[in-house]
Design a protein around this nucleic acid. Structure first.
Lengths: 169, 169
DNA sequence: AAATACTTTCAATTATTTTTGAAAGTTTAG
DNA sequence: CTAAACTTTCAAAAATAATTGAAAGTATTT
């Protein structure tokens, strides 16, 4: 396979993968582009390579920065902004986990814990029992997942590889 | 809080959570509805409770069955189909992991492994080196994640709780 | 202070996904 | 076999999300 073809395929694949994960296609493609670029890249380059508008590029770059996956880079002698993505896949994964935990797990946990004191009118007791059971299970489960992720985010790569992978393999 | 209010809130929350995870709102709401119902539920009930059309209900129930999260249930003396969802949250989570692994991780892994033999024309060597490095890292990483998930899917709840949670806590 | 280089915003457009509902299909009962 | 009960399909409509591009904003240089 030729380099250009592989590059395009990779950017496309990363893009469609992103959409399964709540990240939009363009955002994931920009990330892919930066991942495989050995030098900082400017907005114009991104617009050209992906054939997207300036506004679109700008918005998605900002979203990536907001997710902590991309950083602004100052290139000496240049006025415009340049961007790079962290290349350590382990760190990328942890950063994504960190953001999703904050944006999704935390809200759910707070809603669940507000659902523990519910009144039933007569005739609803069986339904309420089932409801409470599900809520309690879910609350316990998300609590455990949260603790696990918290520990995972604190631990370093080597520790993880040594312990978890060995335990699971 | 009253039971009905809590019930509605839960269904709504589960629904919007779903959309962050590539599962559409209605599908997640139907799942929530079945999760907290102590008896099997028919299509009509779902249509009424969620105010959705028959087609929509049917499509999303089928999707849930396809994901292995919902099962058809035969109610004696009734002709129409009834549905239930598995109540064990641990199993629900494992089932979701199993399906996502199959639908998303596997395709990516096969694409990555097809990207290991690439030719660069002159002047592209540095770019190609960076590209190969990223692909190799990603391939290694997804391989590890895959092994981990595979083991996780095989292990039982108690084993998991004893080992992983203790290790991480 | 005016021109230049660049970034950000956002209303309008375009693309994608979801939902509807009526028609077609299927199964069961009489 | 035929009607009734129920399920599935799918083209069209509605809802939602992403994208454009021109105008407004900001910072830098002359």
């Amino acid at each position: 396979m030729e380099y250009k073809e592989a590059r395009q395929k990779f950017i496309g694949t990363w893009g469609s993968l992103g959409s399964n994960w709540g990240i939009n296609k363009t955002m994931a493609q920009i990330h892919a582009l930066l991942l495989i670029s050995e030098i900082p890249v400017c907005t114009e380059d991104i617009m050209d390579e992906l054939s997207i508008s300036r506004g679109n590029a700008n918005m998605n770059i900002r979203a990536l920065i907001d997710w902590g996956l991309v950083h602004r880079e100052v290139v000496p002698g240049e006025r415009k902004d340049f961007f790079t993505a962290g290349k350590d896949i382990w760190k990328v994964a942890l950063q994504i986990i960190r953001e999703r935990r904050r944006r999704e797990l935390e809200p759910v946990m707070s809603i669940l814990s507000n659902m523990k004191d519910i009144n039933a009118s007569k005739g609803e007791q069986a339904k309420l029992d089932e409801f409470n059971k599900v809520i309690e299970d879910l609350d316990g489960f998300t609590g455990k997942v949260d603790k696990m992720l918290e520990t995972l985010l604190k631990s370093d790569k080597n520790w993880f590889q040594k312990n978890i992978i060995r335990l699971l393999t």
